[in-house]
Design a protein around this nucleic acid. Structure first.
Lengths: 244, 244
DNA sequence: GTTTGTGAAACGCTTCACAGCG
DNA sequence: CGCTGTGAAGCGTTTCACAAAC
C-alpha cells in the first residue's frame, strides 16, 4: 500500500492530479486489456472476478494481474476476488477515461477513412472530433457527423474541438510536418500510423503503429519454424523507392 | 561470434534453417525498424552507416543497435561502421523476407478495405494474396487485383495462394471462429485487429493490434500530465454493450 | 582517431511462493 | 478454505565502459 508516492514532494509547478501513482509502463499497457476483459465479464453478468479468471480473459498469468491491480490500491477482497464494476471504475479513473477524449485524425486517405468509420472508439472513451487533410479537394467532405477541415486551420480546430490526441494517418513523407503542426497547436499526445520515426520535443508522447513491422515480426517466427522460404516471385529488386 | 548456437543439437525432427540463431524477442521486434531506417539511408545515397547514425534514424540508443546487430554476426567494420546494403540483406535474410510472403485478409469491412488498399505492404515483403469474407454479398467483389472469396473456401484459398499469414479484420465477435478456421487451414501466423483475446494451439503465433488500447495508453500519460479531465459529455453510462 | 563488439553492471519486469485476511 | 497482496528470487533487457580492430 505504498502508492501515491509522487504526492507533493518536489516543486509543485504544475498541478498533478492528487492520487495518481506513477505506474510501471508494462502495467499501464495492460490496464486497457483488463478493462476490455472486465467489460466483457460485466456484460456476461459477472459481479465479481478472481485474478485467475480475469487473467484468463485477458490472456496473461494471474500473478501478473494481482501485481498490476495492487498498484492501483487494494480493490480486491481476499477469498472472493474483485468487484467488476468497481474495478472498471478505478481503471477508467487511472487511465483518465472518466470523460470522453477528443481525437483529431490527420490524413483522410485510405486508412484515415477506415479509422473514421471504425465504431470501436466511441465505446472506449474516444470521439473523433476533427478530420483534417492537406488536400483542398477533401476539405468539406463529411464523414459521419464530422466535416473535413484544412490542415492550415489546425490551431483553430484543436482549440474549438478541445483535441487531446492527434492521430497521424498520412503518408510517411508528410508525417513529420504534421507532427510539428500538432505540437505547435498544443497537442501533446500523438498516435502515428506512418512508417517513420517522429522527432518531437520533450513532454510530447508518441506511440507508433506500423502494420508492416507486425507482419515482419510474424515472418521471423514463421521463418524459424522452418516454414522456410515461402513462394512468390524472388522479391523484386526493391525499386529503390521504399521509405513509405 | 557465438551465434548459430541452435545447430543440430537436439532431435532434428523438423528441419530448422541452418544458420538461424534464436534472437531475443526485443531484438526481433527492432530489426524491422532498423530495416526501415536502412532503406531510407540507402535511398539517401549512404553506403555505410555508424551505429550512432542508425540509432538516430531508428529512434534508439547506439549501444542497443550494436548489441542487436552483433546478434546476427559481425557485419560491421571498426572505425568505419556498417555497410548499408549488406546489412539490409542480412536483416532481410534473418526475418525471412528474401521472398515475398502471401497474406490472407479476413474481413473486408471498413478496416479490411483500408488494409487491402494500403500500398505499404508490397514494398516490405508482403503481398495480399487473398481477401475473404463471410458475407455472400461481398464475395466476388474485386479490390486491386484480388477477388473476395468466401470463408468456407478458406482451406482451398490458403493452399492455392500459399498463404503464410492470416490477418483478422472482422468484428470481435467473429474473430475466434476465424482464427480457428485459419489454424485448421494450416496457417500458423495471425495478425489480429479485433479487440479480443484469441485462443490458439501451441505453435501458432498471434500478434494483436488494438487501436483503442493505443489511445488509452496515451490517455494515461495525458491524464498524468495534468491535462487532466478533458471535456466532452460525462461519458455516457456505457450502454452495457462494449466488448467490440 | 574512430567505431565496433562485448563483458559486466544496472534496471525493470515476471514469476514464485506464502503470509495474511476474509 | 480461497484468494489477494507482496517480499524475494529469477530472468531478460538496457546501458555502461572499454579493449580490440581498422
Amino acid at each position: 500500500m505504498s502508492q501515491f508516492s509522487r504526492g507533493s514532494a518536489g516543486s509543485p509547478d504544475r498541478m498533478v492530479v492528487p492520487d495518481l501513482p506513477d505506474l510501471p509502463d508494462a502495467t499501464v499497457s495492460r490496464l486497457p486489456e483488463y478493462l476490455r476483459a472486465l467489460h466483457q465479464l460485466a456484460q456476461a453478468g459477472q459481479d465479481t472476478v478472481s485474478s485467475e479468471a480475469l487473467a484468463a480473459a485477458a490472456g496473461v498469468k494471474s500473478a501478473k494481474v494481482r501485481k498490476d491491480l495492487s498498484q492501483l490500491g487494494s480493490y480486491g477482497t481476499r477469498g472472493v476476488g474483485y468487484d467488476v464494476a468497481l474495478l472498471i471504475d478505478q481503471i477508467q479513473r487511472v487511465l483518465g477515461l472518466t470523460q470522453c477524449r477528443n481525437v483529431a485524425l490527420i490524413g483522410v486517405g485510405n486508412l484515415g477513412h477506415a479509422l473514421a468509420g471504425y465504431g470501436g472508439f466511441a465505446n472506449r472513451g474516444f470521439r473523433i472530433g476533427a478530420l483534417v487533410d492537406a488536400d483542398p479537394a477533401r476539405v468539406g467532405e463529411r464523414l459521419g457527423d464530422v466535416v473535413v477541415t484544412h490542415i492550415d486551420d489546425l490551431p483553430a480546430t484543436v482549440a474549438a474541438e478541445r483535441i487531446a490526441i492527434g492521430v497521424i494517418a498520412t503518408p510517411a513523407v508528410a508525417a513529420q510536418a504534421v507532427a510539428d503542426r500538432l505540437v505547435a497547436a498544443g497537442v501533446t499526445s500523438i498516435l502515428n500510423f506512418a512508417p517513420c520515426v517522429l522527432t518531437v520535443p520533450a513532454g510530447v508522447d508518441v506511440r507508433n503503429v506500423d502494420l508492416a513491422i507486425e507482419l515482419q515480426i510474424l515472418s521471423f517466427h514463421e521463418h524459424r519454424r522452418g516454414r522456410g522460404e515461402p513462394v512468390g516471385a524472388p522479391l523484386p529488386p526493391l525499386p529503390k523507392v521504399v521509405g513509405s
